[in-house]
Design a protein around this nucleic acid. Structure first.
Length: 421
RNA sequence: GGGGAGAUUCCAGAGCGGCCAAAUGGGACGGACUGUAAAUCCGUUGUUGUAAUGACUUCGAAGGUUCGAAUCCUUCUCUCCCCA
């Protein structure tokens, strides 16, 4: 058994622990869990931090449990949220649960003997429980005073907090208790925003059962300037290839801030200390980013996806129009799978009078939402077509690449393929 | 149940009868500089455009007053605070 705490410590993944957590982990194989609420159809790279905690737990010889929050997802966690959220409808939740379950399954080893991973869904033990039973079994053990003192609750007293969200901590607390009783799970981990919810669980276990349970949290991942991590211009970075293409995923890592690299390497990769420290000292930061992007893209997606992403990136960022012309069409299609493509009929293209129309209405607003938007960007010199800066009165006589493509650049990094069909 | 405050463009937050498509800040996007980095500086940030003190749609919802409303009145919906 490896020393998990030591490992997390040097990786900077340790925020807080309850007393004696380290002793417990070093004493015996310990089962630990982390919950994931099905708020979307895919996990994102923020969740990946939690997943890595489970991975490290398992690698250290302990038993990881991934909990899908089928029940808690129906209520909504107020932690870190500034306002009450809308309910997701049950059908969406069920769909999300299934998707998340599949994703989680990819990261853990479910066939590792004694410390095989397990997946549970808290809906399974909450669906049978009635409200009265819940009040008697759970509610009685904790005081309102205790619940009110939580950070997540305090922050919401001004802006409003429904009874439902207020109760969330009890549900999560009961999860821990249930897993403690039935699966001998003694540890719950999570982001530091989960601390309050987690210790509600250890408290419940202590009061109901006199049992000893432990908590361990990891710092919330933020950008160097304190902002939320894991968002790009186009929103969240999802682990699902249909929601964030491998090309975009690869680009995301490639575009990370230099200052964040040491942190990212420690949190997201499984590389050992020597390797990572060597990267810290590497002066060519782009090289480090390429390695990171490679590691992440191959692990989350696949070797092949990674290769396509690299090829697409090379062709778009470094290649000339000639390189483009010379690439075989079927290869081109494959490479550009993840690059946004916009289709337009030849008919429509031939009737399009100017660049502004082409970039806005003719392409259904996918490149630019409106004509005004397109014009503004053209005026600012932010648009290139086939590598040539375009302006409002650029004539519509572009050479079609492969007789059917136009390569459109919005800014330096956003590429689109306009495809004539 | 009683009393008070409020709902403004992505967010925060000004405006409180015409000069308001709506200050300011943040975010986002673009440009310059670079390394597909950061910092910095500059620009853009409702639609449409004969490009204009133009037209159209926006200031929680629906009505009304007025030559004219984000601004006044009525009703409704929602939120917060205080008292019971």
């Amino acid at each position: 058994m490896k020393n998990l705490v030591e490992e997390l410590r040097w990786r900077g993944m340790l925020q807080d622990m309850t007393p004696d957590t380290e002793q417990q982990l070093n004493k015996e194989m310990t089962a630990g869990y982390i919950g994931f609420d099905p708020t979307a159809a895919s996990l994102h790279i923020g969740n990946l931090v939690s997943i890595m905690l489970l991975v490290h737990l398992q690698k250290a010889g302990h038993k990881p449990f991934a909990l899908v929050g089928g029940a808690t997802g129906m209520v909504g966690d107020p932690s870190g949220k500034s306002e009450e959220r809308k309910f997701l409808d049950e059908e969406v939740l069920r769909h999300n649960q299934e998707c998340i379950k599949k994703q989680l399954a990819k990261f853990l080893d479910f066939d590792a003997g004694a410390n095989s991973a397990e997946m549970v869904n808290n809906y399974d033990w909450f669906k049978e429980m009635g409200f009265l039973q819940f009040l008697r079994e759970v509610g009685k053990n904790l005081t309102i005073n205790y619940m009110m003192s939580k950070d997540s609750v305090q922050k919401r007293l001004e802006t409003g907090l429904s009874f439902t969200e207020f109760s969330y901590q009890l549900l999560q607390g009961y999860d821990f208790y249930y897993l403690f009783k039935n699966k001998n799970v003694k540890l719950q981990m999570g982001g530091s925003d989960q601390w309050g919810n987690i210790v509600t669980g250890t408290e419940l276990i202590r009061r109901k059962d006199g049992g000893d349970a432990f908590a361990l949290t990891t710092p919330l991942l933020t950008k160097a300037d304190g902002q939320k991590f894991g968002k790009s211009e186009s929103g969240n970075i999802w682990l699902d290839a249909t929601m964030t293409s491998p090309y975009k995923f690869y680009q995301f890592w490639l575009n990370t801030n230099d200052a964040e690299l040491p942190k990212l390497l420690r949190i997201f990769t499984l590389w050992d200390r020597e390797t990572i420290e060597a990267f810290d000292n590497e002066p060519d930061k782009n090289k480090v980013k390429r390695e990171l992007a490679r590691e992440m893209t191959t692990r989350i997606h696949s070797e092949n996806d990674y290769e396509q992403a690299v090829k697409a990136s090379e062709l778009l960022f470094k290649g000339s129009l000639d390189d483009f012309q010379q690439t075989e069409e079927n290869i081109l299609n494959e490479i550009f799978e993840g690059v946004p493509q916009v289709e337009i009929s030849k008919e429509e293209y031939s009737h399009t009078a100017n660049v502004v129309d082409l970039l806005s209405v003719a392409t259904g607003g996918q490149l630019f939402a409106s004509k005004g938007d397109a014009k503004r960007m053209l005026k600012d010199g932010g648009v290139s077509i086939n590598r040539q800066k375009a302006s409002e009165d650029t004539p519509m006589n572009f050479e079609l690449l492969k007789e059917k493509y136009l390569l459109v650049q919005k800014g330096k990094k956003n590429y689109f393929l306009v495809k004539l069909i």
